[in-house]
Nucleic acid binder design. Structure first.
Lengths: 201, 201, 201, 201
DNA sequence: AATGAATGAGCTTTCATTCAT
DNA sequence: TATGAATGAAAGCTCATTCAT
């Protein structure tokens, strides 16, 4: 007779993912070890394998779920914004910063531990990541064609803006001098100003 | 009897640093192993210890040398530029991008492997890094006070600009579509535009 | 309330023994694991313990059942043969080869996995095995005394003949070049010729 | 500067092979563990890997060396015997029994642990083993054609004789009731009698 | 300055077995 | 009787580091 939903098993699996995020973000994937992860969850190392396939598969799952979630919530944010290019871009930037501030662990892992993925998993993740980059590139091109932006090279500009907007989550700590809202506004302006079309000359 | 400058020992030491940069940049510090490093150099693992103290000390040396070199060459670049705030900032940005494009391995390590440093080494490195960040922050404040820039929050803006200007070296590969000079110009403009004071209305 | 004879439980128990024979014969006892056995049966590993005591007990049961069956069918074969020593021996050899060809998995396990038995179980099995060897030794002695055989050392000769007659099941595969009947005849002759009394000097 | 020959390294490697033979013969390959092997040698488990590639490679090396040695010493024994078929066969059988009595551990492993070899290694070993079997098959065919033997099916007879002649090393213990020489004679006669041509009727 | 061999601690993973449900 | 989840021990193997030569 199968256990009921919400059973201990599901809670353990969730705790493993939570602890995985925390420890990989803290130590890096290679330096994190499953003994510590198990201890954090409160089970024996071998018991992890009732819930994960391998250490590598855990990393892949965490990254994939993050990117799935990022893509979905980005679409939601864009849908909720006015359709003109500047508003869409501002929505993208604001959502990016806020989302990244709130999911700093996931972001860290998804950006800096890709090299720890094996070839097959790396390929799968890159597709998702490129979809996200392409979304911003398309917005930049639309803004350029609408005459509202001056974008010298859309894909390169997209990379540059993403780097800037992502950077905040490498140093932000809750309770610091500036609120999340302030940081969102500051970075959004910085990004938009960098590409907004100048009045004339 | 000490060997002459170009002795085998000195060449081995240099080869170890070169291989260290390459392998740490490729795999990350924790995932890199000294066996592979020794093989790359063409010696046995035990022989490494005639040239390095520990794996940790190798990492520290590589990062410190990089930051020393970055700080020194930044000062040289700023000295060679006109003293007005905008020109200084442009020189800083252009130098940063070019230097980072040319030292991608060092940059990668100095940015992403700080967590692998032990506490004492981390403290030493952070001082150097903060000096670099402070240099840019000071330029932003000067430009703001001179009325040429609009900088909402100098330290945060400095972080944001550094993230953007550094980002390029995570994807740049020599022989790609765009030359280094083009990338330098593109990123410099993007950064400067983000903070240049708007005409008025 | 006990289930009826053909109940699910009894069928599961039989499937476990069948899978056990197959997997132990294929991989060896130590290399076989209960996960694979459970998968072969179509249940979860924990469920095995409704039907077996331990992995060790499963091995013991399989070997004991095989030897019980071998001893019983040997007696039946000897009873059905003429009582003279040569005929008895020929019946023993023919039965041995045929039985071994038909129960190759059981034979393999009973011959090569005895060392995996714990001390107590090993002792119980050795008694059965020695009974079988003693049966052949007795036939050899009887033949020798009757003047029909020349048996230098009955127990050693018994071991040697058993090794030869058993060996066929390490390489025999159904559908091969020779039929079971041919192999039985060939080996029986080979064994008998080895010990039949020579005409004179 | 390399160590001199006969160094500790070579002695350790030899001790590992000796202990490997002993423990694999005693427990079986799967049930043997490298911790026990290391303890037997008097080193730490990790140190084994200065001398072996993997556990699997150790098994392969032991089996291959045994078969190489068996083939070579068989050739030497045949060369030393008179060239007529019966003498050659007798020399083969006597050599086989004696060699097997003296290398019981190697024989056990080479016969019963082939299934523990991975596919590639298994293929390499089977070639050697078939060469040995083919040598006996050829002698049987020669004896049959010379009219001195009656061999119903040379390859099957070869398998049967090898099984019989090998069987002795599964139960022989030094210091037992019968000397090696006696056992060699007994088994050689048994084998030869099984196939020697009968006078006539 | 280089080597080969050793250490000792650690790693991910496997496994027989238990047990509440 | 079956399940899913847990245990605890052990496995093969890796690795930074040491050291006599």
């Amino acid at each position: 007779m199968p256990r009921t939903a919400g059973s201990r098993g599901a809670r353990t699996a969730a705790a493993i993912r939570r602890a995985g995020l925390k420890l990989i973000a803290r130590h890096g994937f290679a330096a994190m070890n499953l003994r510590e992860l198990a201890a954090e969850v409160g089970i024996q190392p071998g018991s992890l394998y009732n819930h994960i396939e391998t250490k590598q598969a855990l990393l892949f799952d965490l990254i994939r779920e993050h990117l799935d979630s990022l893509l979905a919530s980005t679409e939601a944010a864009l849908s909720a914004a006015p359709p003109d290019p500047l508003a869409q871009l501002r929505a993208f930037a604001a959502h990016h910063v806020l989302y990244h501030l709130e999911k700093r662990q996931e972001v860290y892992i998804a950006n800096f531990e890709l090299r720890a993925l094996d070839a097959a998993n790396y390929g799968r993740i890159i597709i998702l990541r490129q979809a996200y980059e392409a979304r911003l590139t398309a917005l930049l091109e639309a803004g350029d064609q609408a005459g509202e932006l001056t974008v010298a090279d859309p894909p390169v500009t997209a990379f540059a803006l993403l780097a800037m907007l992502t950077g905040v989550c490498t140093w932000y700590r809750p309770g610091g001098r500036l609120s999340k809202a302030t940081l969102v506004a500051l970075h959004t302006d910085l990004a938009l100003n960098g590409i907004r079309r100048r009045a004339s000359g």
